[in-house]
């Protein structure tokens, strides 16, 4: 019953989706399963969730902390200024690949247009964390 509720709720919800950190593995599994199912069906999967703002440490199994939220905020800032999400791709896999290779895929607009000092330092911290 609770599961049913969660499914319905997350299908409809907009706004803050807040999860405790333990559920990340589940979420990721579900995402991949859904995606595999979509590929089997031969359907388009360009509208999968919103992996655009996921931090690289969420995609690996190395663990993460609050910095993933600042990563997401950095992505949002990028998108507000550049008009597109920093790691956007045609498929979720492409997005994930772009995120994991952010050192080469993240291109200059971030630095040229970003004059918000706070944001830059937060992103740096986030990147430090990822390189650990």
């Amino acid at each position: 019953m609770i599961k049913k509720f969660i499914q319905q709720w997350s299908a409809k919800t907009v706004g803050f989706t807040v999860e405790r950190n333990r559920s990340i593995a589940e979420m990721k599994d579900r995402h991949w399963k859904r995606q595999q199912a979509r590929e089997k069906n031969g359907r388009s999967y360009s509208r999968v969730g919103s992996p655009d703002y996921m931090a690289p440490e969420l995609l690996s199994d190395s663990g993460y902390n609050q910095m993933v939220d600042y990563w997401a905020l950095g992505c949002i800032l990028y998108e507000m200024l550049a008009g597109v999400a920093p790691f956007s791709g045609l498929t979720a896999e492409e997005v994930f690949r772009n995120i994991l290779e952010f050192r080469t895929t993240l291109t200059r607009p971030m630095f040229e247009e970003d004059e918000d000092g706070n944001e830059t330092t937060v992103s740096d911290e986030s990147w430090d964390l990822i390189t650990k």
Binding site: V14, G15, F16, T17, V18, E19, R20, N21, I24, S50, Y53, M54, A55, L58, N65, Q66, V68, D69, A72, L73, C75, I76, E79
Partner: peptide, 16 residues
């Protein structure tokens, strides 16, 4: 959110 011990985890464009 962080101060009360939660992570947002990943943003949505649909924040208000």
């Amino acid at each position: 959110l962080h101060s009360i011990g939660y992570y947002h985890r990943y943003g949505r464009r649909s924040t208000i």
